[in-house]
Amino acid sequence: MKFSQKLSQRFVFFLFMFLFLLPVMMFAAGKHEVTSRLRLATTTSTDNSGLLNVLLPPFEKETGMKVDVIAVGTGKAITLGKNGDVDVIMVHARAREDAFVAAGYGVNRSNLMHNDFVIIGPADDPARIKGLSSAAEAFRRIAASSSDFVSRADDSGTNIKEKFIWKEAAITPSGKWYKESGQGMGAVITMANDMKAYTLSDRGTFLSMKSNIDLVVLVQGDKNLYNPYGVIAVNPKRHDGINYKGAMAFIKYLTSKEGQDIIRSYKKNGEQLFYPDVLK
């Protein structure tokens, strides 16, 4: 009995230690957040390409702010902005961006940079689209030959662009050949690679994965494949606690010579991924 009493005393001791330490730990964790944070919702394409890893550190160093990157599809990034869950968004779907600003959710939209989309597919090209100058025509041939096509189907900027091209081609894609995956760009490219299917990708993500896959670029250069990125501050009048000052400083930095130069000089496997739009 004595032994077990000693044991239980020890157990109680530990229990109280936990209960006591818990608030202390949480307080310490909370203390840590005094430095100002800027929440950025952006697309998976900018984050996966590695651009943000070189673009953010100089800004964080200059301002002492910490940028929290939440990488989601364009559609979700815009929703997060609407709900006031982030301070600034960096996305690629011009029509949606304009609607976001027009509805009063965002302010001070600024062009940032661009690259382009490419239609990629298996090298043996069963739908015969290689070298076409029209993306819509390529989509028509893919549908006509019922060749497998993997769609993001996730309301991302790429998916919005894809739907736009289907509309241009006057086709409502459906059937066994049209695979709506609901996944990110990288996952979709991997799926398309495994299925020997076609898909639409931003050039940056494709380049960063090129060495691991067999798919090749088949159609590029159509003006419909242009992919501009914009940056928008979330309207501080809509919600309390928006870091508006930080958002404006961030936009100013991105569109400054320093920010634009970093965007221009960022290369992966020797190829430039993004082209700055403010200072060309």
């Binding site: 949480m26 929290d68 709900n83 006031g84 869950d85 982030v86 919600h239 309390d240 606690g241 928006i242």
Partner: peptide, 16 residues
């Protein structure tokens, strides 16, 4: 979420 009842505590996207 910031537009939700507990939004003013700014908990979303934090360890808490």
């Amino acid at each position: 979420s910031r537009s939700a009842p507990l939004g003013r505590y700014e908990l979303l996207f934090t360890p808490s």
